[in-house]
Structures are given as structure tokens and as C-alpha cells.
Design a protein around this nucleic acid. Structure first.
Length: 507
RNA sequence: GGCGUGUUCGUCUAGUGGUCUAGGACGCUGGCCUCUCACGCCGGUAACACGGGUUCGAACCCCGUACACGCUACCA
């Protein structure tokens, strides 16, 4: 439940039952991915909100790896995950490799802690051994489905096996899981930070598994134990967890712990609705990196998918977003991922990003295309960047667009040839060459003057004249202002290229 | 099936009972700038899911319905 008093946001602490101003709670939040696949943009956004929230309130953002599913564990996915988070600029204050005072941060290395805690629940009678086989459970489920029963889930078959009997059976080597003893009556209610009060009937919850047959904890158990041990103040996670939250609350209660504040984040859907998947286009952080998106643009875009600063700003730096971030401005509804807007956003960031970033992308790209750059200095490259920056949507557009600044065009755009190299183009070309040859100081101003004079004396439109030689020099129909471009390329190179192309023009 | 969450232009959103003949952004579109292509600038397009209530008054509150999504695993 939220209140605003004199612009100060107050939070009803779920257990203490008192109102606390936000700044009174030492904020510790986590991003807790499971290393089973690439970092999906939905997961990235969850990480972003956690990070923003921590930074906005001078709290701690920690990273915890939920690797409790041995079958689905993927080492490569883990490495990608860490790399992607860093690329996005979401550096963790605590986590693998960083300030490990609440570690270890891999759940697979915390097994002793879960063992210790499950014992407490076993002792208090809040948990019990269940010897049911997978087959029995499957049959049970099939039956429930067939009969259309309204109450589904585990039938609590082993709930009343005495501790002694259970102990004996375990001693004899019988395999078991450990389940939580959910109260059979009553309701469990919690307050979601952005949705308000949510209530579930305990009767409808089944006795969830806490410890699996392989000895590993389930998500439910491990995350509750860890969130407590790691002193998590707020749990910001995907809204697929809403319906398990009452189980988590019940676990906190069984331990006698105060639950954190829960805040369930909406999901990101594909543009046409439905799940966002690789088949429907890029879906992971790595995909967007490869497409040439800037990390700050992706973060900005993702942050705005479900959140806004309360005014009309959209293109924002990381710092700006952190400074205006607050949880209560997150929308509860799921959103569609619109790549068109991301592309625009990327352009915005590209136009204002540091030239050194563009320079690096340019040189990288040229290298990949095996275009020689040794003959040109940094100043030259920067001028190319300056001329091209408003014309690119992606970092990866830069090099292909810049190739003619480094070598003669090897190909002339077909459509542009038809348009620009028709009747008279050869004579236009020759007269341009004639005029440019005369220039003793080959700069943008003098070049422009020469073109203006030629247009006037020949009674041919400036656009037409420019079109002929632009194509000859660059191989394409569009690009930076011709005068600046010619100045940078230099007189002899320009004259050379024009002359070379003349064999393809019509007289 | 049960339970839960959600629903404002095509998309992201503003909006917390009168200032909403619903504002902004992307997209699309008309124009300006101009040597081209972009950028930029100016304008246009288009929405309160539906039905009932409550109220002098509802996008905003309540109840239904529809639709979407999630959970219903010894996955997370």
C-alpha cells in the first residue's frame, strides 16, 4: 500500500505493519537469473529496474545465480549473462567476483545452507518427507484433469507420515523429496508494490516441494532462504511469480522471518502479441548488440517499456533515469516490444554519443571489410564520422557507408545510374572536372562557388550537376554535403574518380 | 477446468471524479529546410474493450462480461 505525504513516498511494511519512508529501508535488491539460456530482453529489463532502484536509493544491487536445476545448467549461458549485464552497464555491487561478503552467490554452492534451514522446518513440523513416485504423481494429475477437479495439485498423501517412520524409511535408503506443509485453511494476503493487495486461499495451494530428490532446493525454497540471508529488502521480479508469492510468504512465516517488499514486473510481449522469441526476431541482449545497437539505447528503451519519469522526457542517459526512477511509476500491464521505436531511440543516442565510440565502430567495421586505413589519420576519420553520424541508425551502418572515403567505389548503384547518368551526363561531368581543376584552394567554399557558377552559366540545375558527380565519386545517390565531402577526399582523388566513371555515362 | 493479473491512438505512454471536444513519443502521412540522403523543424492521422451501476458529473470508483497473459512441475 502506498501513500504520499508531502511528496514523500511511504511504504507499508508488510510485517512490521508500520509506514516507513523509502529512505528508511536499507535497499538491497538482486537480479537472480538462472543460467539456462541467453539473456532475454524481459530479464534485462528486470535487471534494469533492480539496478535503477538500488542506485536511486543509494542501495545495493547484487547478482545471484540460481543454478539449482542441474539438468538445465549451461556454462556458456552463464558467461554470456555476465557479459551482457556488463555490456548494458549494469554492474553489480555484490556478486560473482565482486565484493563477496554475502556469498557465495551461486546457489549450487549454498547447499549446506539449505540443508541447515530445511532441518528447522522438518523439526518444527512445517515440512515433511514425501515418498511418492513420479508415476503416482503423474497418475494423480491425469485423474484430476480428467475429472475436472477444481482443486488440483499434490494430494498430501505423505503429509501425515510420522517423523519416526520417515526417518526409518530414509535410513533404509528410500528416496524422498521434502515438501512444505501448507495450512489447509485461511487466506494468505500480501501487498504487491505496484498492484496493491493480492489474496489467495490456502486451500488451493498444494504442498510444494522444497528439496528435490537430487538434494537440490527448488526455486521457491532457495530464493526465500537466500533473500533472507542476503538481507534483500525488495524483490522485483517477473509477474509469473505472483501466484507463487503466497507460498513464499508462508515460508517466511514458518521461519519467523519478515518478508521483503514484493513488486511484480509486467512481461514483454512480441510486437504482434504472444511471447517474444527468437523466431519473431531479435529477443536477446546479444542479438541487439550484434545488430549494432548501443547499450545505452537498449537500456533507455527497455526502461521506458513500462516505466516513465513522470514528465515528457524520453531520450535519457543512465544517470538521468536513475535520478528520476521510482517504483510507483511502473505500469502493471504487459507491453509489446516495438523494434521501430528502439531503432529511433538508437539513432537518438547515436547522434549524441561520444565520437570516440563512433570512431571505434568505424575502424572496427572497416577492418572487417578489409578496407585499408593506414593512409588516413585520426582527424580524417573523425571528419568522416562527423559527416555520417546523422545518417546512420546503427553502429554497424557506419563502415559500409564510409567505404568510399577510403577507396574508390567498386560499384555504382544501378538505380542511381539510371537517374543520374542519362542524357548529357558526360558533358556535365567533363565541365565539372574542368571547373574543379582550376581551383587552387580546394575547399568547401570554393567548391560550392564553382558549382553555383557552373549551374548558372550552363543553365543546368544544380541538383542535376551534383547528382552526376556524387554518384561518380561515391557510388551512391545520397550522403553528406558534396562540398565538404569533396574537400575531405581532395582534389586529385575527386578528379580521378570522376574521370574514371565517365565511361559509364551517356553523352 | 481452477486460481490470479491485466485492458487509454497500430505501438510505448500521460491521466488518480469536473481543467479531457483525452496530452506526448514512435510509426504512418503532408509540408519546410536543401546539392542528394539523412538529421532537424512545422502540421495531420488515430484511443478511454464492452455492459451495467454509484455520482450533479466517470478514462478515473464498484459489479459483471469479453479478451490477453501468468501459475496450476521433484523448471525457473
Amino acid at each position: 500500500m502506498l501513500f504520499f505525504v508531502n511528496n514523500l513516498m511511504l511504504v507499508l511494511h508488510p510485517v512490521k505493519g508500520i509506514f516507513m519512508s523509502h529512505s528508511d529501508i536499507p535497499v538491497r535488491v538482486r537480479f537472480a537469473p538462472s543460467p539456462t539460456g541467453y539473456l532475454h530482453v524481459g530479464g534485462a529489463r528486470t535487471a534494469i529496474y533492480n539496478y535503477f532502484f538500488a542506485k536511486a536509493l543509494q542501495g545495493t544491487f547484487y547478482l545471484r545465480i540460481e543454478d539449482t536445476d542441474q539438468k538445465r545448467y549451461n556454462e556458456e549461458a552463464l558467461q554470456d549473462l555476465l557479459k551482457d549485464l556488463q555490456w548494458l552497464g549494469l554492474n553489480w555491487d555484490e556478486g560473482p567476483g565482486v565484493n563477496e561478503k554475502h556469498g557465495p552467490y551461486f546457489q549450487s554452492q549454498r547447499l549446506h545452507l539449505y540443508a541447515q534451514h530445511i532441518q528447522k522446518l522438518l523439526d518444527s513440523g512445517d515440512a515433511y518427507y514425501c515418498f511418492c513416485t513420479e508415476e503416482r504423481l503423474q497418475e494423480l494429475r491425469a485423474e484430476q484433469e480428467k475429472s475436472g477437479a477444481s482443486i488440483t495439485g499434490y494430494d498430501r498423501h505423505c503429509r501425515d507420515i510420522s517423523k519416526e517412520e520417515a526417518k526409518n524409511r530414509i535410513a533404509q535408503g528410500e528416496k524422498a523429496v521434502i515438501r512444505f506443509k501448507v495450512p489447509k485453511t485461511g487466506n494468505t494476503t500480501f501487498t504487491d508494490f505496484i498492484r496493491g493487495e493480492i489474496s489467495y486461499q490456502n486451500e488451493l495451494q498444494d504442498d510444494l516441494v522444497l528439496i528435490k530428490r537430487d538434494g537440490f532446493p527448488t526455486y521457491h525454497f532457495a530464493s526465500v532462504v537466500d533473500d533472507h540471508l542476503m538481507q534483500t529488502s525488495h524483490v522485483l521480479r517477473g509477474d509469473e511469480w505472483i501466484s507463487s508469492t503466497p507460498k513464499h510468504i508462508l515460508l517466511y512465516k514458518a521461519f519467523g522471518w519478515e518478508p521483503p517488499v514484493f513488486c511484480h514486473l509486467p512481461v514483454i510481449l512480441a510486437a504482434g502479441g504472444g511471447k517474444l522469441s527468437k523466431r519473431k526476431g531479435a529477443a536477446s541482449v546479444g542479438d541487439f548488440r550484434e545488430l549494432g545497437y548501443l547499450p545505452e539505447a537498449l537500456v533507455n528503451f527497455l526502461a521506458l517499456l513500462g516505466w516513465n519519469p513522470g514528465d515528457e522526457r524520453e531520450v535519457m542517459s543512465l544517470e538521468e533515469m536513475i535520478n528520476s526512477f521510482s517504483l510507483d511509476r511502473i505500469n502493471p500491464k504487459s507491453v509489446a516490444f516495438d523494434e521501430k521505436k528502439l531503432k529511433w531511440m538508437n539513432g537518438q543516442h547515436l547522434h549524441r554519443c561520444d565520437h570516440s565510440v563512433l570512431l571505434e565502430a568505424l575502424l572496427d567495421g572497416l577492418k572487417k571489410e578489409s578496407i585499408q586505413t593506414e593512409d588516413f589519420n585520426k582527424e580524417y576519420h573523425l571528419k568522416v564520422v562527423e559527416m555520417l553520424k546523422t545518417r546512420v541508425s546503427f553502429l554497424t551502418d557506419l563502415a559500409p557507408m564510409a567505404s568510399y572515403f577510403y577507396k574508390k567505389p567498386s560499384h555504382f548503384d544501378e538505380k542511381a545510374q539510371k537517374k543520374n547518368w542519362g542524357e548529357n551526363s558526360l558533358s556535365i561531368s567533363k565541365s565539372v572536372r574542368n571547373e574543379l581543376k582550376k581551383l587552387t584552394d580546394f575547399n568547401a567554399v570554393s567548391i560550392e562557388k564553382a558549382f553555383q557558377q557552373l549551374a548558372e552559366s550552363s543553365q543546368i540545375g544544380l541538383g542535376k550537376i551534383v547528382g552526376v558527380v556524387r554518384l561518380a565519386v561515391s557510388g551512391v545517390a545520397g550522403g553528406p554535403g558534396l562540398w565538404e565531402m569533396f574537400e575531405l577526399l581532395g582534389q586529385s582523388e575527386v578528379l580521378n574518380r570522376i574521370e574514371n566513371a565517365e565511361s559509364l555515362m551517356k553523352s
